[in-house]
C-alpha cells in the first residue's frame, strides 16, 4: 500500500510536469530591406541619381559573413551567406517584405547588437567554388572571379540615362572583391530572443548611399563599370569606395 501511494504520487508529478508548455528554441529572422534614397527599392524602376541623372538599379547582392549576435555570450549564427535583393525586390508588391534569413535554434537571451562582415573572409576567399557542396553560398561560379582569384563580394548593377531621353543607355556595374575589400559592419541595437519565439531584426540598405559620401560622388557616366581590376587603380578605388559605403548604407529599421 505504501509503494502504491508512492507510485500514484510519482505518476501525478510526471503528469503535472507533462502538462507544462514545451518551449522550443529561439529563432532569429534577419530581414534586409532595400531602399533607394529612403524609399523602398524596386529593381528596374526609375530613380534619380545624386546629380539628377535618371538611373535604375537592376541587381544588388552582397556576401554577408560571420554573422555574430553580440552579448555576454555572443554567438556566430552563420559563417557565410548571400543577401540577394533580386528575390523580393523585383516588384513593388514584395519589395517591402525585404529579404529574410532565418536562424533557428539560437540561444535565447538578451543581445546587445549585430556584427557581420561584408564580403568573404580571407580564409574562405582563398577557396574555389568547386570546393563547396552544391547549394552552399560559395558554390556558385557566377559569384567567383577567376581573374582576381576572389569571390565577388558585392554586385551593384543598373543603367543610367545621361541625357534624360528615356533611353537608359549607360551601364552601371560595380563588382567588388579581393581580401583588402572585406569590411565589417556592427551596430549596438539590442534585441531579445525568447525561447520558443521568433524575433525579427530588420536592417535597411539604401542603395543610393553606395554611390556617394559627403565629399565624393561616383561618376556613373564616365566610370560606370568597375571589376576591381588589381592593375587598374581607378577601378580599385571605385570598388573600395563602394565597399566602404556599405557600412554607412546599412541601418537598423
Amino acid at each position: 500500500m505504501k509503494y502504491l501511494s508512492l507510485l500514484i504520487f510519482g505518476f501525478a508529478l510526471i503528469s503535472i510536469s507533462g502538462c507544462e508548455e514545451e518551449k522550443g528554441p529561439a529563432n532569429l529572422q534577419l530581414v534586409f530591406k532595400g531602399l533607394f534614397d529612403g524609399n523602398t527599392l524596386v529593381l528596374n524602376e526609375d530613380n534619380t541619381y545624386v546629380n539628377g541623372i535618371p538611373m535604375r538599379m537592376s541587381h544588388l547582392q552582397f556576401y554577408i559573413a560571420n554573422i555574430e549576435l553580440k552579448g555576454d555570450f555572443g554567438t556566430i549564427v552563420k559563417d557565410i551567406d548571400v543577401v540577394d535583393f533580386s528575390q523580393n525586390h523585383m516588384n513593388a508588391a514584395t519589395a517591402a517584405q525585404g529579404e529574410t534569413m532565418t536562424f533557428e535554434d539560437v540561444p535565447p537571451g538578451t543581445y546587445t547588437g549585430l556584427k557581420f562582415g561584408i564580403g568573404v573572409p580571407p580564409a574562405l576567399n582563398s577557396m574555389q567554388p568547386a570546393e563547396f557542396a552544391v547549394g552552399h553560398p560559395l558554390s556558385n561560379t557566377a559569384d567567383h572571379w577567376t581573374a582576381w582569384n576572389s569571390f565577388i563580394f558585392a554586385k551593384v548593377e543598373g543603367r543610367s540615362d545621361e541625357d534624360d531621353d528615356g533611353i537608359f543607355s549607360g551601364s552601371i556595374l560595380y563588382h567588388t572583391g579581393g581580401d583588402d575589400l572585406y569590411r565589417e559592419y556592427e551596430n549596438n541595437s539590442g534585441f531579445i530572443l525568447v525561447e520558443g519565439e521568433t524575433t525579427t531584426v530588420t536592417l535597411t540598405l539604401d542603395a543610393l548611399e553606395l554611390f556617394y559620401t559627403a565629399t565624393d560622388t561616383l561618376d556613373i557616366i564616365n566610370n560606370g563599370v568597375s571589376h576591381t581590376t588589381p592593375s587598374d587603380q581607378v577601378s580599385v578605388d571605385i570598388s573600395t569606395f563602394v565597399m566602404d559605403n556599405f557600412i554607412r548604407a546599412i541601418n537598423v529599421e
Binding site: A130, N140, T141, A142, H144, W145, T146, A147, H175
Partner: peptide, 14 residues
C-alpha cells in the same frame, strides 16, 4: 567575356 562565361564551366548559368 568572362563575367558571363566564367571558368571552369564557361557559363554562369544565368
Amino acid at each position: 567575356c568572362g563575367h558571363c562565361h566564367n571558368a571552369p564551366l564557361f557559363t554562369t548559368n544565368q
